[in-house]
Design a protein around this nucleic acid. Structure first.
Lengths: 218, 218
DNA sequence: ATCCTCGATCAGTAAAATGCGCATTGGACC
DNA sequence: GGTCCAATGCGCATTTTACTGATCGAGGAT
């Protein structure tokens, strides 16, 4: 998991980056907020370590901005002992944890692991449709609470229907979603997979709209 | 989770106790330090709310005493706005958080939840999946109680699967996690390491979902 | 108009044929 | 020794084919 470290003090930043790398984490270290901004846009970090006092702006604003954009990636705040207000503002702004400088590097690693574990748990926005529960991130489906094993195509079809639950999708649309660009299929593939899904998920899971396509009721 | 409230002001104590009870917490309210002492001995509290100015002694001493006895239960300090010294001393003495009077009761509840979450995290850093026991912090794995030695890549792969145990992860996702930025691998590296992990951890440790990826059962 | 019949089209299912995705191995490279 | 790559063979998901069943509209009889 790749980590973004935002810290302007060279000594501390270097120490943290080195130690984390030694603990087998991939770390990018930036010293300014606008660099952080650019890095976040370019790379898919799994976690952010954020010092709140930076030369070109308030770290807190970066955090608020992230959360406002519905970005739920874990953020751990690095704060000095006397900046107690920051800590609390940080937590209120959506930080996942904080650690007080000067801190033990092993403790930081422990916190990182803890936060990652926690965020891995919460980050599964499952949604329900009839007697089905669908977890897109985990690629899982439950029927009446029992997990159902799907094959790749079956899942792709269900995912497509679920993403636009309530809407009727034409067979052409579904075909497009199933077969990555160009790979035309000249058969009733969609119907075949609808059939198999119905067998696994229940006959009334997918509603056919004759002449138009299929629909997953919300 | 049962909470001990140590607060001598009747109006505040009553308000806090009532509000917490309404938020489905079990609360015991004491007004004196020796009562608190007795209560702590008698009941297994999960969290302590501590006013530092009490008629029969300093709350700080109670806190220090707890920490000295290696008691790591979370403590939140209740303090007046002008008593800044107290807050800092409190944190140094091992408090987990503090809140300034007069405070919003809902904020107190939020703090309590945050602190509880954090302390629950510290407690059990190891987790189980089937016949495997995985300690992320120590980077160790046991199979049926016997420790298994893993290489760096093997561990990285297992860690990734473990962090999202139960979810199906695509090979692309696993590759991304294994190879920090840029170091693209154009081979069946993931498959190879899955194979080696299976050899070490048992054939059924990692489940393949054909066409989708791999999954570590919870 | 209403009802029924019939044919045509579209949808559902089963089962066989195909070919891709995966596991595994041995050897090269660092 | 750890990691990465290439080649092999196998098994299962996919795809196709072909058949059965469902639905609808047209048109004739009442």
């Amino acid at each position: 998991m790749r980590i973004l470290l935002i810290e302007d003090e060279p000594a501390l930043g270097d120490a943290v980056a080195t130690h984390l790398k030694r603990s087998n984490h991939a770390v990018d270290w930036v010293q300014r907020l606008d660099d952080a901004d650019a890095a976040l846009r370019a790379v898919d970090y799994g976690l952010v370590l954020l010092d709140l006092h930076l030369p070109d702006g308030r770290g807190l604003d970066l955090l608020r901005q992230l959360r406002k954009a519905d970005d739920k990636r874990p953020v751990i705040i690095l704060t000095a002992r006397d900046q107690i207000r920051d800590r609390i503002e940080g937590l209120n702004a959506g930080a996942d944890d904080y650690i007080v400088k000067p801190f033990d590097l092993d403790e930081l690693v422990a916190r990182i692991l803890a936060v990652q574990r926690r965020s891995a748990e919460k980050a599964s926005p499952t949604f329900r449709a009839g007697n089905l529960t669908i977890d897109q991130a985990a690629r899982k489906v439950w029927r009446d609470g029992d997990e159902v094993q799907l094959t790749a195509r079956e899942w792709a079809l269900l995912e497509c229907l679920a993403q636009r639950a309530g809407a009727t999708l034409s067979k052409a649309q579904l075909e497009e979603a199933l077969y990555a660009f160009g790979a035309e299929v000249e058969s009733n593939a969609v119907e075949v997979f609808v059939s198999r899904l119905r067998k696994k998920l229940g006959a009334d899971a997918i509603h056919t709209v004759r002449g138009l396509g299929y629909r997953l009721e919300r």
